[in-house]
Nucleic acid binder design. Sequence first.
DNA 1: CAATGTATGTCAGACTACTGACATGAGTCA
DNA 2: TGACTCATGTCAGTAGTCTGACATACATTG
Lengths: 153, 153
Amino acid sequence: MSQGEPGIELDTSVGYTLKAAASALHSALEAVLSPLGMTITHYSCLELLAQRPGLSNSELARGTFVTRQSMNVLLKALERQGLVIRPARAPVGRALPTELTARGRRQLEVASAAVRRVEQDMLANLDANEQDQMRRLLTTCIASLTEPPASAT
Amino acid sequence: MSQGEPGIELDTSVGYTLKAAASALHSALEAVLSPLGMTITHYSCLELLAQRPGLSNSELARGTFVTRQSMNVLLKALERQGLVIRPARAPVGRALPTELTARGRRQLEVASAAVRRVEQDMLANLDANEQDQMRRLLTTCIASLTEPPASAT
DNA sequence: CAATGTATGTCAGACTACTGACATGAGTCA
DNA sequence: TGACTCATGTCAGTAGTCTGACATACATTG
């Protein structure tokens, strides 16, 4: 058994296929980020900060789909490496707005190019319409999973 | 900032949306499986064994998208709990064909129903055509990510 | 103004999954 | 037959993320 030809189709469940796709993307991203000394969450955090400067620890956590505790650990590491910077005291409330440093921006540039390549590979066999459709379908699924307090019939 | 209305759209990257969907599914599954004392991989392993009895440790690992080392740890736990059973010696080669026990089948039944409900929630707002389309698109992405040794050009 | 609720940052411990490494069994080929 | 390749099972150590808990800051409400 198992000769390169796995033959696994597992009842063609959409959930299973979604997990498989996410896993494939995860592996591909790891493959290009690991040589750069970065994890996926590490990259995601920098990318998010580049697009939305001043995000807090909790906001970064939500944007990268980890807990704020995990993001806290990561942020302290990134701070120690001089990739991001946070004020010593919160300007308002408790939230500490985080910013990329020049060094962080440089590291992100390299990683971002690699990640973009991976995403292009993933979408290589889909036309613009299909990519749009896919994004739309996924977004609908997310909404259905997170909003369904309406468990009525 | 952040008032329930996140406003995050992050350049509408398909990769990001895929990660978000997988994360939402992961959370939803955890929410229903954790009360049953099971992790997602734990459930995935039992489900895979029910559909394909006799799978080896390595094959189960591939089917659940973890390393064979991780699956090995899990399998030993499941064996200790009396949910699965493996022969002491390999009938051929080194692969140990694993089987569900009656108890494992019972535990799977409960979990499987809960997981099916989650998947139905996720697909609640998609018709049959859209579900089919989504599966097709995801499968294409997986193929593009895993087969692209053709990096020419 | 005092009480409550919500959101945040952070510390500590536990768990899951990973990488690295080694030995065994089977197939391939010179 | 012997060398090589590949897949498997397993042990050990590491790393990333999680849950639990606590204190602080702001908004809401009585």
